[in-house]
C-alpha cells in the first residue's frame, strides 16, 4: 500500500479520491446554504446550521473534510515539485494552447486561489461559529453573520471571483478524477463530462448568488 501511494498512479488516485470527496462536500454545503433563498429572515438556514453544528456524524465528517483538504493540497505540492523537476530546462517557445485548455494546465494556480479564498472564508464563518461563542451564546446567528459580512462590496467581489476559480478548477478536475480512477468509456465518459460541465457552472453560480443577493438586499 505504501508503495502504491508513492507511485505516480497512486498519487493520482489519491488526488482524485480526495477531489471527489471535496466535490461531495460542495453539494452538501451548497444545498444547505441555499436555504437562505427561502428568504424567511434566515429561519430555515439557521435551523440547518444548528443541526449541522450538533450532529455527531457531521462533526466527524468536518474532521475528515479537513484531512481531505490537507491531503489534496499536500499531494498537489508533491506532484507539482516532481513535475517541475522532470523538466529542468524549459522550452523557449511552448504553444500549450494548441493542444490543451488553459485551465487544465493551471490547476495549481486555480487551487492556490481557492485556498486563499478558503482561508478568508473560514475566518468569516467557521472561525466565528466554531471557535467563538458568538453564535452558541445566542448573541448572533450564522445568518446574521452572513448579512454583516456581505455588506462589504470588496468581500462580495472576492467571493464571486473565487467562484470563477472554483468553476474552472472543477471544469477540469471533475472529469479528470474519473480518468485517473481508470474510468474512460465510450458510453459513460461523455456523460461524466456533461455532468462535470454543468456541475462546474451551476454550483459556483449558486454560491456566487448568495453574497450578491445579500449585498443587493434581495435576501434579508
Amino acid at each position: 500500500m505504501a508503495n502504491f501511494l508513492q507511485s505516480s498512479i497512486g498519487k493520482k488516485v489519491l488526488m482524485s479520491i480526495t477531489g471527489l470527496f471535496l466535490i461531495s462536500f460542495l453539494v452538501v454545503h451548497c444545498f444547505l446554504n441555499s436555504f437562505i433563498f427561502f428568504n424567511d429572515g434566515g429561519v430555515m438556514f439557521n435551523e440547518g446550521a444548528e443541526f449541522m453544528a450538533h450532529n455527531p456524524i457531521i462533526r466527524t465528517m468536518e474532521i475528515v473534510l479537513f484531512i481531505g483538504i490537507i491531503l489534496h493540497i499536500v499531494q498537489a505540492l508533491i506532484l507539482t515539485l516532481q513535475n517541475q523537476k522532470a523538466r529542468p530546462i524549459k522550452y523557449a517557445v511552448q504553444n500549450g494552447a494548441a493542444n490543451s485548455k488553459w485551465y487544465s494546465r493551471s490547476m495549481g494556480l486555480l487551487g492556490t486561489l481557492i485556498l486563499m479564498f478558503l482561508i478568508i472564508h473560514l475566518k468569516h464563518f467557521w472561525y466565528v461559529s466554531r471557535l467563538t461563542d458568538e453564535i452558541t451564546s445566542g448573541e448572533e446567528t450564522l445568518f446574521g453573520e452572513m448579512i454583516e459580512v456581505f455588506e462589504n462590496p470588496m468581500i462580495v467581489l472576492l467571493y464571486v471571483l473565487a467562484m470563477f476559480s472554483l468553476g474552472y478548477h472543477l471544469l477540469h478536475g471533475f472529469q479528470s478524477a474519473f480518468q485517473s480512477l481508470g474510468l474512460n468509456h465510450k458510453k459513460y465518459s461523455p456523460l461524466i463530462a456533461a455532468i462535470g460541465f454543468w456541475f462546474s457552472i451551476i454550483v459556483p453560480f449558486i454560491f456566487a448568488m448568495m453574497p450578491i443577493s445579500i449585498y443587493f438586499g434581495l435576501i434579508k
Binding site: K11, N83, K85, R87, R105, Q175, Q179, S180
Partner: peptide
C-alpha cells in the same frame, strides 16, 4: 518522468 494531470496534450 513527471505525473499525468490529464490535460490531454
Amino acid at each position: 518522468f513527471g505525473n499525468c494531470t490529464n490535460t490531454g496534450a
